[in-house]
Computed example of a mutant assay.
Amino acid sequence: MPLPRLAVTAGEPAGIGAELLIRLAATPLAASLVAITDRQLLERAATRCGVAIELIDDDGSVQTERRPGSLRLRHTPLAVDEIPGQPDPRNARHVLDTLAEAADGCMAGRYDAVVTAPLQKSSINDAGIRFSGHTEFFAERAHAEVVMMLASPELRVALATTHLPLAAVSAAITQASLTRTLRIMHAELRAKFGIAEPRIAVLGINPHAGEGGHLGREEIDTLIPALDALRHEGMHLLGPLPADTAFVPAQRRHYDAVLAMYHDQALPVLKSEAFDRTVNLTLGLPFIRTSVDHGTALDLAGTGRADPASLIAAANMALELVARRDTRPPSPLRGEDRDEGTILPRTIK
């Protein structure tokens, strides 16, 4: 049976991405791994990790098995050799070229999914190229509206806003943007995770979800009207909920995913519990994209000691999503854990 083809990008050449990719290739993962990066970068990373690696130029042919340590390659040359821990803006175009090949290859059917190692946004911007992250790059490349979600085995969290200063968050959240985000979440929880009737918990923006307007009116003026309109469409939405109690264990059984209003509202909870098992996904793309949930770890680059657990988790989740896409109709998740008789109350009236 043909193995799924996963395009894997190495991210920032001066970071830990290439070393993580080498560690991933050394596992018995049942996938055709296609590295999109520079050959010599991988060879140097393998030497630093003390891992024997077999690099095979990718010809697009079908693989039915893969030996641990073997890795197919789409050679994308660096502009200059990397210096571990010291990003060089001259390699910014290399990084973007690898992302373009991965995205275009998925949309053309050459790859079943893309898995990305971390990159250094500042280095790309230092090269004079406007760039805010993987998520935004893939959205623009695919002409798609997307949502960032991070998922561990225990918790899924999506973001209403991503990489914004906190002072800009409230103005960025509108009824229209919330409606768009929740529709994407709802559709992708059904399509990608096989949840027939997704239950989504929506966090408030303000402390105590606004305390009836005493701590801010965003919940009353923006969140509640948007949620009520979507409830009339049949969506199962809880909230707006106070963020400080929404993640307690007793509450989690009532929802399948959480929509947080801003980056640091919910991600610290997720990462503190499952940093090495959390995967970043981009919802709304016409292809599957997963990633690590951490950065380039420049202080570890070149040591061969970086932990590959998150990249391995991202590759495994990509395979699960590919399998579900190809073989499984939507069905309820953990049906025995659902409690349809208890609905978390809205705090705002």
Rank of each mutant, 00 (worst) to 15 (best):
residue 248 V to H: 07
residue 267 L to R: 01
residue 244 D to L: 12
residue 256 D to V: 02
residue 287 F to I: 06
residue 267 L to W: 03
residue 283 L to H: 10
residue 257 A to Q: 12
residue 255 Y to F: 00
residue 281 L to D: 07
residue 285 L to V: 11
residue 262 Y to I: 05
residue 280 N to L: 08
residue 247 F to P: 01
residue 270 L to T: 03
residue 288 I to M: 14
residue 247 F to Y: 00
residue 284 G to T: 10
residue 283 L to C: 14
residue 255 Y to S: 14
residue 265 Q to K: 12
residue 276 D to A: 14
residue 255 Y to D: 14
residue 281 L to F: 01
residue 282 T to I: 15
residue 287 F to A: 08
residue 285 L to K: 09
residue 288 I to E: 13
residue 261 M to S: 07
residue 257 A to H: 00
residue 263 H to C: 12
residue 275 F to N: 15
residue 251 Q to L: 07
residue 280 N to E: 11
residue 265 Q to S: 13
residue 253 R to Y: 01
residue 264 D to M: 15
residue 251 Q to D: 06
residue 280 N to Q: 13
residue 280 N to M: 10
residue 290 T to C: 15
residue 269 V to H: 05
residue 281 L to N: 07
residue 260 A to G: 04
residue 261 M to Y: 10
residue 278 T to W: 01
residue 275 F to H: 01
residue 254 H to E: 13
residue 292 V to L: 07
residue 276 D to W: 02
residue 256 D to I: 02
residue 271 K to C: 08
residue 264 D to P: 11
residue 253 R to C: 09
residue 272 S to M: 12
residue 262 Y to G: 08
residue 262 Y to N: 09
residue 279 V to F: 02
residue 262 Y to D: 05
residue 259 L to A: 08
residue 292 V to Q: 11
residue 245 T to Q: 04
residue 267 L to V: 01
residue 246 A to L: 03
residue 255 Y to I: 02
residue 254 H to P: 05
residue 247 F to W: 00
residue 268 P to M: 10
residue 283 L to V: 14
residue 267 L to G: 05
residue 291 S to G: 06
residue 252 R to N: 01
residue 288 I to C: 11
residue 264 D to T: 14
residue 263 H to T: 14
residue 287 F to W: 09
residue 260 A to R: 01
residue 267 L to D: 12
residue 250 A to F: 03
residue 249 P to M: 04
residue 252 R to L: 07
residue 250 A to Y: 01
residue 264 D to F: 12
residue 258 V to H: 06
residue 289 R to Y: 03
residue 258 V to A: 10
